[in-house]
């Protein structure tokens, strides 16, 4: 599989580390329901059959975290962007 890195270009998936679903965001640690929210953030994941936004880290390349839209049924990658700011974090 090859992932088109927005900085480096298309690279073998071997150069990347996979984290998983890009949807969960870190909850407010001071909120009254923080314990439940963190439990969900850390453990609860959907497992969709179809397009999914995922976090991948280009560990052997530009060391950017990427948001990769991948179809879990076909591994087809339809979009890749820098995670976070969308500008490479710089």
């Amino acid at each position: 599989m090859r992932i088109p890195c927005p900085y480096c270009g298309a690279r073998s998936s071997h150069e990347f580390a996979y984290l998983g679903d890009a949807a969960p965001t870190r909850p407010d640690p001071s909120a009254p329901d923080a314990a439940e929210a963190f439990h969900s953030y850390v453990y609860e994941r959907d497992n969709p059959a179809g397009p999914m936004d995922e976090l991948w880290y280009h560990s052997a390349g530009c060391r950017r975290w990427l948001k990769v839209t991948r179809d879990t049924r076909t591994h087809a990658i339809t979009a890749v962007a820098f995670a976070g700011t969308g500008e490479g974090g710089r």
């Binding site: 580390a17 984290l19 870190r26 976090l55 880290y57 560990s59 060391r63 950017r64 975290w65 820098f82 995670a83 976070g84 700011t85 974090g89």
Partner: peptide
Amino acid sequence: QHLEFCLQVLWP
């Protein structure tokens, strides 16, 4: 990798 995650994803 963890520090880059913090800086790029959690607290850009």
